[in-house]
Design a protein around this nucleic acid. Structure first.
Lengths: 140, 140
DNA sequence: CTTGCCTCTGACGTCAACGTCAGGTTCTAG
DNA sequence: CTAGAACCTGACGTTGACGTCAGAGGCAAG
């Protein structure tokens, strides 16, 4: 599997994949001419990397945690890091939940035509109960 | 209330507050000599701005939503934006939850001394049920 | 063999949310 | 009144995760 294929499979740009390698997140088998070749397994690894980036981790942190996640090998430091990041993500979820609830409240107050709203809903406010199924998984 | 006081009250830097004003997120009453003075109410507004930044919104988006949130005034566009951002945050929470669960699984597998772990837990793995109370509210 | 697409290595560009420094004014405590 | 803290407006610096371009080589099809 060459880099273009991997890019297509993961939805990550070729540039990003080379960047990951530069950051020590990915290793590639090189052909005689220097071209990168990857085994199927890296698809999952790239997906995981994307998850961690989306969770706000830096390349450096990801590089520290990946051996721990994949090889199940951990040093005291990496374990501490693992706990710390897990907790940080928990806090982030909590904060996001508060933010979402705040937005829901705003939607409720400006959304109901009976509370001094300038316009009426122009979208399906009642798709379900105000919460349409979240799209696949954008995560930015 | 001057800008330094507001900074102290909100935990946001003076530079950031001036930046928010530059981006149209905050307005200040100017004294004759040009110094900014704020009413108490802006403290909440700054907190809200921080929440939205933490949720990954850009200044531009925040600027679009703030009138909607504060003055309860909405145009069809801003309402659409409101929904879109709420949904995006929902998706973000879902993704973060999956990421956290993945990390929890890793912790469980590398953490239990009975599964080929190199080191034993060096931290209070069992503070409660593996999930110590998340710190105040970092959110990055 | 050559055409066209893929790949390679630099290396500079980008963007947002500030940090930081310079040079000058203003407020306040003593 | 005077020192020192706080404030002002530019304006340039920073960081991370890439985008983009340049110039050169590699690879399968016809």
């Amino acid at each position: 599997m060459r880099i273009g294929d991997l890019a297509a499979r993961t939805g990550v740009s070729v540039r990003a994949l080379r960047y990951y390698e530069e950051q020590g997140l990915l290793k590639a088998n090189r052909s005689g001419s220097g071209q990168r070749h990857y085994p199927e397994s890296v698809v999952d690894r790239v997906d995981l990397i994307q998850m961690l980036y989306a969770a706000g981790l830096s390349s450096r942190t990801i590089a520290e945690l990946l051996p721990c996640v994949e090889a199940k090998v951990s040093t005291p430091e990496s374990r501490a890091r693992l706990f710390a990041e897990r907790d940080r993500i928990d806090a982030q979820i909590a904060g996001l939940t508060r933010t979402r609830d705040r937005l829901d409240a705003v939607i409720a107050s400006t959304g109901s035509p009976a509370s001094g709203c300038t316009y009426i809903a122009d979208r399906d406010v009642a798709t379900q109960a105000g919460r349409p199924a979240a799209p696949p998984m954008t995560l930015r």
